[in-house]
Design a protein around this nucleic acid. Structure first.
Length: 359
DNA sequence: AACCCTCACAACCGCACGTTA
DNA sequence: GTAACGTGCGGTTGTGAGGGT
């Protein structure tokens, strides 16, 4: 049979994405939703292959992605989960809201591997067998089953919690972690809900805007340098500040009503604002973008119909928008927990009890 | 200041596999 | 059953930043 390549190798741009490309991509996805990646390059004019677009979206532009340093708790979780699940980064990522599998993989390869090696070297012959996955007293399969049970229990708890508020369609049950396309998938037992993708819009992409704002922020930090460098070497990857005098139609203004956004699919068309006008002050502009996105967030609640559409890890990411759910506690609380304590104890205690003390 | 080296990270590639029409 | 499309993953590469000489 043989699958054709996802794109022609000719005329396809490679390398780092520019903020401009990001904006185009996000703008397109905001309008059409994620999926049908093959048509994305054609429809957007992006000189990127479909896979690259998908990757860019899933790993960096998708709403709810957290970047930057991993917390100790995240680190522990990754170490535990890696020991339990092996290099199944997507599975591991589903336990770490806001982190992508690629991010986790990179972090593992660059940081944790070395860290564990050091630790292992230090502990060599001292009985810390838990760092050697092959030496687990219980097979990985057993742990996986146990994990699955835990997940199932957590999902049930989540569904129960959500079912208490049926009047406000929650995004949490829209999808399961492995679903990237907003398909309805039950989160355990009978808690499938209609997809609210059509109603997502401003809020969803406000988060994307955050991502882009962060990107821009990072970029603008170097923009002075870059601009200077551009003078000497025009072939730079980064566009000049003038290139970003872009009027955006997908980013809501800070004053826009989130509930309105959630109920009016096309509301974004009325939310035009020039957020990337770098003409006067590049960094100021990007900061204002960030502040718009960030300022808006607290006003978004599940009760208002806010839908944090994350087609990749919706359950966990979207949970993050609901204050203190069981699962959220389970996943994030380093301290004392109530019922979900058991879950975390089981997870964190799975044959790796002692390593936590090492970090 | 210039050069070299290392490191971290973003991005890409290729393959296997799952899903869907 | 098959083709098209998408996901997941391991491995790799390219590049910029930072540190040392």
């Amino acid at each position: 049979m043989g699958r054709p390549p996802c794109c022609d190798k000719v005329g396809v741009k490679k390398g780092p994405w520019t903020p401009e490309e990001d904006i185009i991509l996000v703008s397109y996805i905001q309008e059409h939703g994620p999926g049908n990646w093959r048509s994305v390059p054609t429809n957007t004019g992006l000189l990127r292959c479909s896979k690259s677009c998908r990757l860019r979206w899933t790993n960096y532009l998708r709403p709810g992605i957290k970047r930057g340093n991993f917390t100790d708790h995240e680190e522990k979780m990754i170490i535990h989960l890696q020991a339990l699940l092996g290099n199944r980064w997507a599975a591991i990522a589903s336990y770490l809201p806001q982190r992508t599998d690629n991010d986790i993989k990179n972090y593992w390869n660059t940081h944790l591997k070395k860290k564990l090696k050091k630790i292992q070297a230090g502990l060599d012959g001292h009985g810390h067998e838990e760092f050697r996955s092959s030496s687990h007293s219980i097979s990985k399969g057993q742990w996986e089953r146990r994990l699955q049970t835990d997940i199932h229990m957590a999902k049930q708890a989540l569904c129960e919690a959500l079912s208490l508020d049926k009047s406000s369609p929650s995004p949490l049950a829209d999808t399961k972690p492995s679903d990237h396309y907003g398909h309805n998938i039950d989160c355990g037992n009978n808690c499938a809900r209609p997809s609210y993708q059509a109603t997502v819009s401003s809020c969803t992409y406000a988060s994307s805007t955050e991502n882009i704002a962060r990107l821009l922020e990072g970029w603008t930090k170097n923009s002075t340098k870059a601009a200077q460098a551009a003078k000497s070497s025009p072939g730079t990857n980064h566009p000049t500040a003038q290139d970003y005098s872009i009027t955006n139609s997908f980013i809501p203004t800070s004053g826009s009503s989130s509930s309105e956004g959630a109920t009016t699919p096309d509301h974004h068309q009325g939310l035009e604002c020039s957020l990337f006008s770098f003409n006067s002050s590049v960094s100021d502009a990007s900061q204002s973008v960030a502040s718009v996105a960030l300022d808006e967030k607290p006003s978004l609640t599940a009760d208002q119909g806010f839908v944090f559409q994350d087609e990749n890890k919706p359950v966990l990411d979207q949970i993050h928008q609901v204050p203190l759910t069981l699962l959220e506690k389970w996943l994030f609380d380093d301290g004392a927990l109530v019922a979900p304590q058991v879950q975390e104890d089981q997870l964190m205690g799975m044959s790796l009890d002692e390593d936590a003390a090492l970090f």
